[in-house]
Simulated scan of single mutants.
Amino acid sequence: MTKIVVVGGTGLIGSKVVADLAEQGLEAVPASPHSGVNALTGEGLADALKDAQVVVDVSNSPSFEKKAVMDFFTTSTTRLLAEAKAAGVGHYVALSVVGTDRLPESPYFQAKTAQERLIAASGLAYSIVRATQFFEFVDGIADSATVDGTVRLPPALIQPIASDDVARAVSRAAVGDPVNGITEVAGPEPFGMDELIRTDLTLKGDPREVVTTPEAGYFGTPLKERSLLPGDGALLSETRFEDWLRASERA
């Protein structure tokens, strides 16, 4: 049976990937500090990767501060790659972000770019799945842009995706052949960021006013109109934001 180790396997995406792979009859092993495996320190890594054919890295930094986030992704990825090589892993899969190489001013995107480069240069067969922002984090965009009860956002385009669809894309990559490159996944429709948040707040009965401000950033980072959109050939999911939001509210 194929053994797939999912690093970050107890988080939002990781837990869904583990469940999806298990439903396919595969041995999916969640690896995280909760299970005694720490990619940052190396604790438990060698044992976790023993006899693994595939490693899936969906871990994320607990801090987005510039030095901390860079240290997390470069240190953990370097350790993971080394242990994967030592274990004879045949396929290294990592989750990244659409637009990573277009936002050099963002410390988080800088760190994800560094991670991608380490993987590509490792000599291991690999697949990088870049996803757009998750529906689950739309509220965080609104909160980060709120000052004195007003949400100030640019009209730059964004094409968010449900986390379930991201997990399925990562699972597909894990059971498929390495592409030795990048695959992008996104939701079915683009929105102006201001429009997306306005829709979100309206459907939730949130009274905050959304003001369109072209100079406003994305978590403090300036955007061009298409900085966060996938390129040609991206895989588009079918789950629409409004349908997902209404289902979530009912749940």
Rank of each mutant, 00 (worst) to 15 (best):
Q159A: 11
R250A: 13
P190W: 02
S163Q: 11
A173V: 12
E215H: 07
L223P: 03
D164K: 03
A169E: 04
P207Y: 06
L196N: 02
L236C: 03
R208L: 08
G205I: 03
I161E: 07
Y218G: 07
L228M: 11
P178T: 12
D243K: 07
D177H: 12
G205H: 05
I161S: 08
T202P: 05
S248A: 04
L235P: 00
A174Q: 09
N180T: 14
A216R: 06
T221G: 11
P160C: 12
S227H: 03
A173R: 10
D177N: 15
T183Q: 14
V211W: 03
K204V: 00
G205V: 03
E184H: 08
E195R: 13
L236K: 07
E215A: 14
E195A: 15
E242P: 01
E195W: 08
R246Y: 02
A173H: 13
D177I: 08
A174P: 05
F191A: 09
R250Q: 13
E238F: 00
D165N: 11
D200N: 11
L203A: 10
L235K: 14
I158M: 06
S227D: 13
P207T: 04
G176Q: 11
G181M: 07
T212Q: 13
Y218Q: 10
I182P: 04
Q159G: 13
I158Y: 02
Y218C: 07
V185I: 12
A247I: 01
R198N: 14
G231P: 04
T202Y: 10
G205Q: 02
L157Y: 13
F219S: 04
V210T: 11
E249L: 13
D206W: 00
D243G: 03
D194T: 10
T239I: 09
P188M: 05
D232P: 12
L203D: 03
A162S: 07
G176H: 11
R226I: 04
V211K: 12
E225P: 08
T213V: 14
G181R: 04
L245W: 01
T202D: 15
L235Q: 15
D243S: 09
E249P: 01
L245T: 00
G181A: 11
V170Q: 11
S171E: 06
